[in-house]
């Protein structure tokens, strides 16, 4: 069985479709929550919580550690990293997140931002 092309093709197709499908489903499932609280984690510790639904005027703040700085933008219902002084810029390219199971990770700075929702999922 392990020497058959067909076995691997089916297995990999299943992993691909399941992975992509489940991810997109989770990623979009929490988007319409009643409450949305963004949580900012540094090195596994919660450093800031922001109720995204109570934001009226969008604002930005810096998260700075000895590892570097990320500039975070908050607006009603959403949060994103707008700039970072790390080399890979993965967190900036992620764009805005707004729902459960959505996470922004800036690994070089040990920064993670996620959103907790209620009533959405």
């Amino acid at each position: 069985m392990l020497y058959k092309t067909k076995f691997w093709a089916i297995l990999f197709a299943a992993i691909f479709l399941l992975g992509l499908g489940l991810f997109l489903w989770l990623w979009n499932s929490g988007a319409a929550g009643d409450s949305a609280v963004a949580r900012v984690w540094l090195d596994g510790e919660l450093v800031r919580e922001i109720d995204l639904n109570s934001v009226v005027i969008p604002y930005e703040f810096d998260v700075t550690t000895e590892l570097g700085t990320n500039r975070v933008r908050v607006e009603r219902g959403g949060i994103q990293v707008v700039s970072a002084d790390c080399p890979d810029q993965v967190c900036v390219r992620m764009g805005e997140i707004s729902g459960a199971f959505q996470t922004i990770a800036c690994v070089p700075h040990k920064l993670v931002i996620d959103v907790l929702t209620e009533g959405g999922v």
Partner: peptide
């Protein structure tokens, strides 16, 4: 695994799904 260990934030394991799909492609 490195990302989870470095950040100490297991929430990012949700990426396992997209990373599995991406790994196949």
């Amino acid at each position: 695994l490195v990302a989870v260990l470095v950040t100490g934030t297991p929430q990012i394991l949700v990426y396992a799904l997209i990373l599995a799909a991406a790994g196949v492609a």
